[in-house]
Amino acid sequence: MPVVTRSLHETVTNDELKQRLIAEWKNGDAREPRPTIIQETDAQGNIVHIYVVWSDWGDCDQRMRSELITDAYWEVFDDKALALTVAMGLTPEEAKRMGFPLS
């Protein structure tokens, strides 16, 4: 049997994901792969739903993705984030499987 060496070191940490989301909202993160952020508004123009399609989600589970998106959004927009009711993170494969529209 061949020897297999695997790294237990996380390639992308949750904090790094959050910081990159913050950077994306603030001024557009230059690092690739960049997330595609889809924001839906209510009748008053408040952003109520946020979907982040990103290949870097990797092994981050869906609840954690939601928490990271929520935390990052609040950090950037503060009280404007009070209207937020949905935060969902998807990999491009998951988005495709769900038939999620990317525009």
Binding site: Q62, R63, S66, T70, D71, W74, L82, T85, A87, M88
Partner: peptide, 12 residues
Amino acid sequence: LVYPRLSPAKKW
């Protein structure tokens, strides 16, 4: 789905 609504509610 339920789970994408939990964190925003908690933060709110």
